[in-house]
Simulated assay, not measured.
Amino acid sequence: MTLTYRLDSDVFWNYGLFIDKETGSIVAPSKYVKWREPEAVDDPQLLKFIKQSKTKQAAWFLSHCGAKSFRDNLGTKIQEFMDVDIYGACGNLTCPLSIDIYNTEGRQVCTDMLNTTYKFYFSFENSICTDYMTEKVFLNMDNYVIPILYNGVTDMQHFLPPKSYIHVNDFNSIEELANYLKFLDINPQEYANYFWWKKYYKVTDNVHKYSYCDMCMKINNWNVRKKRNQYLDVAEWFGHKACYKMGNNFK
């Protein structure tokens, strides 16, 4: 039996969940998910907040330099076209979260700064592997900041609501991506529309209890006669062969 972050695991163990506010049921991540249709956000207070408080474009907390995904190179390329504040060992700015990720009080300070000051947050993974998307996405989805994604998830609809994120792979070039972010930067209504989903869903990173319950249920109902998944080569399914070798040249 496998328990991993991959959707095709026997027991799915993810870094965050989306809960339907009306029913309280888990919506995603899931192999079978149906989201509501995105809609325009009609919230004068949110628009006022965006115009008056969010004065900076993008932030990135980065203390693990030289990752296999070459995300450092990607960030450097984006900086050619727009402003990006980098906190941590790989940048020139500091915040408690970039020094100690286990500092709960410091995390709140940095989260508040992101929420009130920045419009975008770079959620670039250190490895580009099948279904690998860490807490850096889900923790920031709980705020009013749009995550810019770079990961190995091939079908994002299984994980996040439509029009709630921006993915690097959806653009033909880094310049095209940066131009779109700058468009949102000067168009508060278009920017605000990325938070339409907050009316219907909420995010939680308390995923362990769900995974443990799922695991216990499957163990207690184990049927030796029932056909189940076979993993003839774990390295191929989950190890290095499940990750993509990335180039370090971004156009």
Score class of each variant (00 low, 15 high):
L7K: 13
F12L: 10
F12M: 14
L17H: 10
K21V: 08
E22V: 06
S25Y: 05
I26L: 07
V27W: 13
S30W: 06
S30V: 09
K34H: 09
K34V: 11
R36W: 05
R36M: 10
E37R: 13
E37F: 08
A40F: 04
V41K: 09
D43K: 04
Q45T: 08
L46K: 13
L47G: 05
K51D: 15
T55V: 15
S69L: 04
D72H: 04
N73Y: 09
G75Q: 01
T76C: 13
T76Q: 13
Q79G: 03
F81C: 01
D85Y: 00
G91W: 01
N92K: 03
L93K: 15
T94K: 07
C95Q: 00
S98Y: 01
Y102N: 14
Y102W: 05
E105L: 09
L114E: 07
T116P: 06
K119N: 03
F120P: 02
Y121V: 13
Y121S: 05
F122T: 00
F124K: 10
E125G: 12
N126D: 07
S127R: 12
S127D: 09
I128Q: 07
T130L: 10
D131C: 05
Y144D: 06
P147A: 12
I148G: 03
I148M: 08
N151Q: 02
G152R: 01
V153E: 00
D155G: 09
Q157S: 15
L160V: 15
L160Q: 04
P162D: 12
Y165H: 13
H167Q: 06
V168Y: 11
N169K: 04
F171S: 02
F171A: 14
S173M: 01
E175S: 06
E176T: 09
L177G: 10
L184W: 15
D185N: 15
I186Y: 03
E190R: 02
Y191L: 04
F195E: 07
W196A: 13
K198T: 14
Y200N: 15
K202T: 11
D205C: 07
H208I: 09
K218P: 11
N221K: 13
Q230D: 05
L232P: 02
L232E: 07
V234S: 12
V234Q: 04
A235I: 08
W237K: 14
F238Y: 15
G239S: 07
